[in-house]
Design a binder for these strands. Structure first.
Length: 542
RNA sequence: GCGCCCGUAGCUCAAUGGAUAGAGCAUCAGCCUUCUAAGCUGGUGGUUAGUGGUUCGAGUCCACUCGGGCGUACCA
């Protein structure tokens, strides 16, 4: 519909020259009586033309060549909006397109041939994924999927660090639990990992090696066993949510391949770093940020900033057109340093999109649960998935803008899982499948011959909603906002349920019945495609 | 103190700078001898935290105030 109007205005701009290079856009008004599409172009032009906006709008309307079989009504409204109403037959013809495209309906080729990388989760293997990680994981995977829908070839990537202080403490935590199993009197330190999973790993080591590890160093087998066990669990947790990373990038490889040293040399060459008090500092203040930061500590160990910068330069060198980072808000102070450093190294950071999500506040029976992996007072993502299922977890984290500080009441989530909006969508899909089972026995089939019979308001609204899917996907992808899809699908499901209630198939004259079946099938396609972007299943029966 | 994010119905949240701020949950009243009632119809519920500004038009942009979250490490 939009494309049609753009063409129409293009043609008309020969007569009305001020339409050339005008800020022309069309939007679907919130209120149905304001038409199918509306433009505010007359309002925007009135200033530069120094004319009354309604007068300008009238002139435009008069100049537009209207084909009444396509546009049934055009009107001037309010302060100068031009509202367009499309004919039912034109609207209904969309059903056939949806049917022909099937699983591909909603995909676009706008970014075909481009490559993107989405880095998400990236939790170090020190403990199970928490509900907090769930938001990052689900959102990141959905963004990746949205990018695929608009044409990108996408790599999903997980960045991790299995060296450093955290991991040493982890290894030592396992070692101490192991010694406890051997019967040693151990005062388990408060700054070690308190979780039960540490005991499990220790127990497993004992089962395999008995007491032969008594003198094993923490950084040896203990750390290795912990890392591999925990990583396996993380991958299992993610796979339950249908999340699979193509690339697992180990921070350590940056050292092994000399990237860190290379980067340090480059900073030095470009005079972007200096030595002070035995540490190496990055001249961030000269690059435009607030203050200089340490990149190599006086102990000789780099801070996280250095590998972060190196990692991003490695990814940029791989030739992606778009790099997406999904971070929690605790990283909001670090990425500007990385960005500005990359820029000073000569990289085009426009290719990098950093998406910061706010934290999830977990409430249990109204009480805030403070999350800490080390202190082991967290709710794991697995526990949540056990309680409500993968579909609800995925839908829930996708249905809210990441800028919002989410409150998640566990007790409520468990209790109300039956009333979650995801079931509303799945129910719509299941109902359509039920229609399909029914028509077989009635020897009815979908038909596109008489789509112009679909003139009921419920039918027209549903078709219009279906028509907007491709645009919604594109908007969601370009704005990196998954909640647009869930909002859209809920609206769509509402439109379908109303259609289902008021436009029956059984007991209707055959031509109309078969047109309605075609419409129901089109709705099925869109619901299924939309849910598949979100990674939510579309059941045939409920 | 400074930086980033947030503040919308009782609760959880929507709303490309557009016309009358919307859903779900909760609550109240209706609808199942016909394709799934996990549904549909209607009602109650708002000074969009506050004050000023920009604009033909502000929940949305700007400034300030109040309130909350996260940062502000030679931790990641």
């Amino acid at each position: 519909m939009k494309a049609y109007l753009y063409n129409l205005f293009e043609t008309t701009s020969n007569a009305l020259t001020y339409l050339k290079d005008s800020p022309l856009t069309f939007e679907a008004p919130k209120i149905e009586s304001h038409g199918d599409l509306s433009t505010n172009v007359a309002l925007l032009l009135s200033k530069s033309l120094k004319r009354n906006p309604r007068e300008v709008a009238n002139e435009i309307i008069a100049a537009l060549p209207i084909d009444e079989s396509i546009i049934s009504k055009i009107e001037l409204a309010g302060p100068g909006f031009i509202n367009f109403f499309f004919s039912p037959a034109f609207i209904s013809s969309k059903i056939k397109t949806i049917f022909e495209l099937g699983d591909n309906y909603g995909k676009s080729k706008k970014y075909a041939g481009k490559k993107a990388n989405v880095e998400f989760v990236s939790a170090n293997p020190t403990g199970p994924l928490t509900v907090g990680h769930g938001r990052n994981a689900v959102f990141g995977d959905t963004i990746a999927s949205l990018l695929e829908w608009v044409g990108y070839e996408v790599d999903r990537e997980y960045y991790f660090n299995n060296a450093g202080r955290q991991m040493r403490v982890l290894g030592d935590s396992v070692r101490l639990r192991y010694l406890q199993i051997l019967g040693d009197e151990i005062d388990f330190p408060e700054d070690h990992y308190q979780g039960e999973y540490i005991k499990d790993i220790a127990q497993q080591l004992f089962n395999e090696h008995k007491d032969t590890l008594r003198n094993e160093p923490a950084e040896g087998l203990f750390k290795a066993a912990a890392e591999s066990e925990i990583f396996n669990d993380i991958k299992k947790t993610l796979s339950r949510l249908k999340i699979e990373h193509k690339i697992f990038f180990n921070e350590n490889s940056l050292y092994e391949e000399g990237k860190i040293k290379q980067l340090l040399d480059t900073f030095k060459e470009k005079n972007l770093s200096y030595e002070k008090e035995n540490a190496t500092w990055l001249k961030l203040s000269e690059m435009g940020n607030e203050q200089d930061k340490v990149i190599v500590k006086s102990t000789g160990e780099p801070t996280y900033r250095l590998p972060d910068i190196a990692y991003h330069s490695v990814k940029l060198n791989r030739g992606y057109d778009l790099l997406v980072d999904i971070f929690g808000s605790d990283h909001n102070a670090t990425y500007p340093d990385v960005m500005v450093a990359l820029k000073n190294l000569g990289y085009n950071t426009d290719r990098v999109k950093v998406l910061i999500h706010q934290f999830v506040t977990i409430l249990d029976n109204g009480e805030v649960v403070k999350m800490s992996t080390r202190k082991a007072n967290y709710v794991t993502l697995d526990e949540l998935t056990d309680e409500v299922g993968s579909d609800v977890v995925r839908y829930f984290f996708n249905m809210r803008n990441i800028t919002t500080h989410m409150n998640f009441d566990l007790a409520l989530a468990k209790k109300q899982s039956d009333e979650n909006p995801v079931f509303y969508l799945q129910y719509a899909h299941a109902r359509i499948c039920s229609i399909l089972r029914m028509i077989e026995s009635e020897s009815l089939k979908p038909s596109f011959e008489n789509l112009d019979l679909l003139v009921m308001p419920e039918e027209q609204l549903l078709i219009k909603k279906l028509s907007k899917f491709e645009e919604e996907v594109l908007n969601s992808a370009e704005q990196f906002e998954s909640q647009r899809i869930t909002n859209y699908l809920e609206d769509l499901a509402t439109a379908f349920h109303k259609f289902y209630t008021f436009c029956r198939i059984m007991g209707t004259e055959k031509k109309l019945a078969e047109a309605r079946i075609a419409l129901a099938l089109a709705a099925k396609i869109v619901i299924k495609n939309g849910l598949s972007i979100l990674g939510v299943s579309a059941p045939d029966k409920m």
